[in-house]
Design a protein around this nucleic acid. Sequence first.
DNA 1: AATTATACCTAAGAAAATTATGCATCTCCC
DNA 2: GGGAGATGCATAATTTTCTTAGGTATAATT
Lengths: 110, 110
Amino acid sequence: MSQQAYLKGLLEPIILKLLQEHGSLYGYEITQMVKTLTAGDIQITEGALYPLLHKLESSGLVETDLRTMQNRQRKYYSLTQDGKKATAQALDGLQRFVQHLQLILKPQTA
Amino acid sequence: MSQQAYLKGLLEPIILKLLQEHGSLYGYEITQMVKTLTAGDIQITEGALYPLLHKLESSGLVETDLRTMQNRQRKYYSLTQDGKKATAQALDGLQRFVQHLQLILKPQTA
DNA sequence: AATTATACCTAAGAAAATTATGCATCTCCC
DNA sequence: GGGAGATGCATAATTTTCTTAGGTATAATT
């Protein structure tokens, strides 16, 4: 079982968290950021990332603005007001989930 | 986003861990154990559990024996030798993954 | 006697990823 | 000047994995 398998379902809160933390990011930047943070262990594929970003945009949680830097077009994503609320909730839920997970993964007495 | 969504991909290592910890368990017992451990927050549905147990059995990671207790038939699952090795590896990987996840979820300087 | 809990199972569908592409620009190196 | 690799976006077919919704049967509770 690869590390990747565990990522299922967690991509969305991870992206929201990164946007919360950094203000605005573009897609490719997100993939590189996660890769760097996890020493290459976790890799967000573009085939998963872009459709998810589009979904978040169409549901109003993020908004985009296009910027051109040295002839490179980048689409920057940032949280909307709705997105900020949703992110806070999602991260609360995820933290609870991780605590439960740790509980299961620790040696048990029960 | 429900807590359940985060479970994707994690069911298998969780089951392996519980079997490692408890020796042998039957299906229904696993669902109740997780429910209790997480105060009802995480719920393993039978539609996900049984097919997964069957997959683990057919791939040789677990083996079963049927026992009848007060007219109740239970199918107990336990790790094979292969299963024990696979479990150790899976849990190593999962621990690494969770650490990476925590890294992403904590406030960042970079 | 009916409901809930225990205990197993499968099938259709949905969700969310992987894998495999495609396009375009820029930088580095030979 | 030409190729390789990085940057940057995107979509489509397929696969994996789960949810939802059923089905069967026995035991305990009300």
